[in-house]
Amino acid sequence: MNKFKERMFKGITYTASLFTIIVLFGIIATLFSEGLPILKHVNIKDFLTSPNWHPTHFPPDFGILSLIVGSLVVTAGALIIAIPLGLGSAIYISEIAGPRAKEIIKPIIELLAGIPSVVYGLFGMAFLSPFLIKAFGIPSGLNAFSASIVLGVMVVPIISSMSEDAISTVPRNLREASFALGATKWETIVQIVLPAARSGVIGSIMLGFGRAIGETMVVIMIAGGAAQIPKSIFQPVRPMTAAIASEMGETVIGSPHFHALFGIAIILFIITFITNIITEFIFLKKRK
């Protein structure tokens, strides 16, 4: 009886892990089998380097450069905001704050991660965007800049909690040795603790990057949706995720537009795949 139980347990867990792998490969296969046919309608150079995205016009233009640039601009903006805030709060929580302050601040930052993205989107649309028009005198509030701010706030808890984990696993004797040599707290944190926690911190930033570039609802609601290469950060952009999500509804299955959207998904997949590999590589190196 016991032996049977043991074997069944083994079987169930094995099937479960197999299942996720099958699903993953299924998704990748669909992505490529639906996305590659776009190359029959447009050559790969035009697809990747033309900024003109007019998929429903006749004749259509399938250039996704402006969508790729849109994604990269908002993601870079989000990281510029989230890295200092996330890393700063991680250092404060793990190195400077007393146990009382730590107990209060940590859950609050983690609470940010639990807010659904559509709520962030509403906040950006109804509050942030009119506020930016008044504060900066910019002509429009739905643009790459406002999307970056909101995405940045969303990424803060990821960078903060993961970096905090990495920093707190740095052995205490490293810090004590540093203090013993006469280093101040600031010097210890910047020159000893952070380099020691380097891989965890970089990993958290990579994860934040993945979250920001894959976020869909917020950019649909706040980025403005204009498929153009922005001349400034105050212009609207149309990130890849926003294009896929808001256009999939109108496409006829099997049409060039449909394949083009899957083509965008392939590019997005490749970008996140590469970031994941880099992250994995950093962690592997650390373990050795």
Binding site: I133, S140, G141, P236
Partner: peptide
């Protein structure tokens, strides 16, 4: 009449989103 919408026109996903954006954007 089959001319293209210009590239830098914002494209929003619902009637309400357009109404809200126009209501607080002076040049919209």
């Amino acid at each position: 009449d089959s001319t293209m919408v210009k590239n830098n026109a914002m494209k929003l996903s619902s009637n309400n989103a357009v109404a809200t954006a126009v209501s607080y954007t002076p040049g919209a």
